[in-house]
């Protein structure tokens, strides 16, 4: 396989405790740390390992968004991606359109694999890989915790509710990766310097001629109902009494 396309979404850093804006229009992002979606970072790490094993020749990092996402793509380049593509769009883009962007780029680049995180930690939708597989007409291997490339096929272990499921897919294919697949490498300073010289192309969304689906509108954000702090007991006898009091045991 020649090329692996990896999606890198810019999201609110996973350590940030998000706050809903008082007008309900979204969550506070002003002055908030932004990072690569952690699952996407794992996808990139896996793509780099596949390339390092000799099974692929080029890793292309792709993001969709405003020019701010250049920052995440530069981090991806510093990790080891060979080049990056930013599909520029102002405002929101619906998931089906995102899948169409990846299809357009996968076809343009003749990709053997498209690797994505299993979900983005902002919208928590978990849709893009599955949608891409559908419209591209290629296999999907979601929630991957182990990937083995063997010529024109890949064997993938998937984390499913019942345990670990193994499937075999023909390449090209789409994969969405889970937490335990690998631990992404740390970026070193010389890599950051080198990444500045790597190509980062921008393509306006309109140039790809994408037609997604009718979007699902977000009407209002609200904070979740908080659980109240309960009582503290001193010992096991107190705990058992409290459980009995609630009629649970």
């Amino acid at each position: 396989m020649e090329k692996i396309v990896v999606g890198l979404k810019r999201v609110v850093d996973y350590n940030v405790r998000v706050q809903v804006k008082s007008d309900g229009s979204g969550v506070e992002t002003d002055g908030v740390k932004m990072s690569i979606n952690p699952f996407d970072e794992i996808a990139l790490e896996e793509a780099l390992r596949i390339k390092e094993s000799g099974a692929a020749s080029e890793v292309i990092a792709v993001s969709i968004g405003t020019s701010d996402a250049q920052q995440q793509l530069r981090t991806g380049l510093a990790m080891g991606a060979d080049r990056a593509i930013l599909v520029t769009v102002d405002g929101d883009i619906d998931p089906l359109s995102v899948a169409h962007v990846f299809k357009a780029l996968a076809e343009k680049e003749n990709a053997g694999l498209v690797m994505l995180g299993k979900q983005a930690i902002d919208g928590d939708n978990s849709q893009i890989a599955q949608m891409l597989a559908a419209i591209w007409g290629r296999p999907q291997a979601t929630f991957a915790s182990s990937v083995t490339i063997d010529g024109d096929t890949a064997r993938v272990v998937r984390e499913v509710d019942a345990g670990l499921e193994t499937i075999e897919v023909d390449l090209p294919a789409v994969m969405s990766v889970d937490l335990r697949l690998n631990e992404p490498r740390y970026v070193k300073l010389p890599d950051i310097m080198k990444a500045k010289k790597k190509p980062l192309d921008e393509i306006p969304l309109a140039d790809l001629g994408i037609a997604g689906g009718p979007p699902i509108k977000e009407l209002a954000y609200a904070p979740p109902e908080d659980r109240q702090r309960g009582v503290m007991v001193d010992d096991v006898a107190g705990l058992v009494a409290a459980l009995k009091d609630k009629g649970i045991v």
Binding site: L96, D124, M131, A134, F143, D161, G213, I216
Partner: peptide, 23 residues
């Protein structure tokens, strides 16, 4: 919203040309 449904339903939505409401 189990791994079964999360794997299947977005694929179905895309085949039918629509977006999906998750969860």
């Amino acid at each position: 919203s189990t791994t079964f449904g999360r794997d299947l339903m977005p694929h179905v939505a895309a085949l039918l040309g629509v977006n999906q409401v998750s969860d």
